[in-house]
Amino acid sequence: MAADDRLEDDQLARRLREAHRRVRLLPAADKERAARRYLSICDLAKRDPERAAARLDAFLTALDTPREGENTHGD
């Protein structure tokens, strides 16, 4: 493994840890589905880190995007 590959793996690991923190903070109704999706990304990271990084990007974007009907204004 080249040194550059190791740096990319470290970055992916940091991003996966951050995603884990965010999943833990979700309400129970959303946590189970998000946790299953997160675990599938972790499993993929073992075999294909580049594809896992792309799926992680999409996952984090989905976590950032408010769902339809969700109150985002604090009312």
Rank of each mutant, 00 (worst) to 15 (best):
M1S: 14
M1D: 10
A2S: 12
A2F: 09
A2T: 12
A3S: 05
D4L: 15
D4K: 14
D4P: 08
D5Q: 11
R6L: 06
R6Y: 03
R6C: 00
L7A: 15
L7I: 10
L7W: 04
L7V: 11
E8Q: 06
D9V: 05
D10G: 01
D10T: 01
L12N: 03
L12T: 08
L12R: 03
A13W: 02
A13Y: 03
A13C: 06
R14C: 02
R14E: 09
R15Q: 09
R15A: 11
R15S: 12
L16R: 07
L16F: 06
R17P: 02
R17C: 07
E18N: 15
E18W: 11
A19R: 06
A19S: 04
A19Y: 02
R21E: 06
R22I: 03
R22Y: 01
R22K: 11
R24N: 10
L25G: 12
L25D: 13
L26V: 07
P27V: 14
P27Y: 07
P27H: 14
P27S: 13
P27W: 02
A28P: 07
A28D: 12
A28Y: 10
A29I: 15
D30Y: 01
D30T: 05
E32K: 14
R33E: 09
A34Q: 09
R36K: 05
R36F: 00
R36V: 04
R36I: 07
R37W: 01
R37Y: 00
Y38I: 01
Y38M: 08
Y38W: 07
Y38E: 05
L39I: 05
S40Q: 09
S40G: 04
S40C: 00
I41F: 08
I41W: 09
I41E: 04
C42N: 11
C42H: 09
L44Y: 08
L44K: 15
A45W: 10
A45K: 14
A45D: 11
K46S: 09
K46Q: 07
R47D: 15
R47L: 14
E50T: 12
R51I: 03
R51N: 08
A52R: 09
A52E: 07
A53F: 04
A53K: 13
A54V: 14
A54G: 15
A54I: 13
A54C: 07
A54D: 14
R55P: 05
R55D: 13
R55I: 05
L56V: 15
D57H: 14
D57Y: 13
A58L: 10
A58N: 06
A58E: 13
A58Y: 02
F59K: 00
T61E: 13
A62L: 01
L63E: 04
D64G: 12
D64K: 06
D64V: 04
D64F: 03
T65V: 09
T65W: 03
T65C: 03
T65H: 02
P66E: 01
R67P: 07
E68S: 07
E68C: 03
G69D: 09
G69N: 10
E70D: 14
E70H: 08
N71G: 05
T72S: 08
T72L: 12
T72K: 03
H73D: 12
H73S: 11
H73Q: 12
G74H: 00
G74K: 00
D75G: 13
D75E: 11
